[in-house]
Simulated assay, not measured.
Amino acid sequence: MSYILKTNNLIKTYNGKEVISNVSMNIKKGEIYGFLGPNGAGKTTIMKMITNLIKPTSGEIEIFGEKLTNTSYELLKRLGTIIEYPVFYEKLTARENLDLHCEYMGYYDKKAIDKALELVNLKNINNKPVKDFSLGMKQRLGIARAITTKPELLILDEPINGLDPIGIKELRNLFKMLSKQYGITILISSHILGEIEQMADTIGVINNGKLIKEVSMDSIRENNTEYIELVTNDCKKTTYVLSNTLNISNFKVVDNNLIRIYEDNISQSVILKTLIINDIVIKEITTRSISLEDYFLSLLNGGTISA
């Protein structure tokens, strides 16, 4: 199997405190790798180490089969990045900013600037200086800068911050296109788990500086657990009937009106019929699948599904 990016027992210590602990990631060529974790979990720190912005305390990073060192200038030219918020020359236009970036990177295909601006829907902004851009426009320009030089690996830290739903959908489709059609490998973090679920091939979940899971989305879908969710105005009586009449024990009371049933050997219709016979009013009953958000939260809760 061909890996574009690997980390081996990556550790980062600040003031004697270990903030990243023995992280070993494996990112395959051409895939979209969704990097998930709560605020402060260590996602940005790891991305900064991968892009040589900060140095690991110990451990190794391997990109394109080569160990990352202080002098890996040619390796880094093959990357496109957004780490935290993109910064620009505010008085210059989008095109002028990208032109300077290409000069800095030693990349002289000027047509690539037009293509990048078109891909992120910033083509018709004429001579508008970046200082007059909205947050969403700056995020788009940051992505344009990251892809202008046709990188083999994109490192994107929260790239859809500040975008409206239409903009988020456009960039989701762009990232999928870059991966599938151009073979670009993408490491992307986001708090919007529904978006990662729709685009990622693999996810890595980090918490308290430790990588607690690395798993393919196909594997999550194959092992997806369905559950029945019902809304009632008499939760106490409903749980009594579930336990004593239907002999269901694998259920969770989410709040005063909502119950989730994880039993897989009894149908929704049997549950509904039994509850109605027992004069329980059911406002809603649906069969749902555990989402990436449910899976993510279960990992953070030690492997148990939580409301």
Rank of each mutant, 00 (worst) to 15 (best):
T232E: 07
I184F: 03
I160E: 06
L178P: 01
C102K: 03
L300K: 06
T148M: 10
P56T: 08
S291K: 12
L122P: 06
K43Q: 09
I285Q: 03
I166T: 13
D99N: 11
N265L: 10
N233D: 15
L171G: 04
I184M: 11
F175G: 03
I192Q: 14
G37H: 03
K77A: 10
Q181A: 14
T149N: 15
A146F: 01
N26F: 12
K17W: 00
K169G: 08
T81R: 13
L117Y: 02
I276K: 12
M1F: 14
I212G: 04
G194M: 07
V19C: 08
N208Q: 14
P129C: 04
R78A: 01
T93N: 01
L153W: 01
L297P: 06
R78I: 02
V87M: 11
N97Q: 10
T44H: 05
K17N: 14
Y107F: 15
D132C: 02
R78N: 13
G303Y: 10
L100W: 03
N22T: 04
E214C: 10
N244V: 06
R95P: 00
K48Q: 14
I261D: 06
H101K: 11
T81N: 12
L242S: 02
E74N: 13
I61Y: 05
G65E: 03
K273C: 00
I63M: 06
N52H: 07
A116Q: 04
D157V: 02
L98N: 03
N173Q: 09
K169M: 13
S134G: 01
G16D: 14
D234C: 08
A146G: 06
S291M: 06
I147S: 08
T185N: 04
I305H: 13
F35R: 02
A94E: 09
I212L: 10
S190E: 07
L187D: 03
G34Y: 03
N161D: 09
Y107A: 06
Y182Q: 13
Y240A: 10
S269W: 02
N301M: 08
I11W: 05
E197L: 09
E90V: 03
V19N: 01
L258K: 15
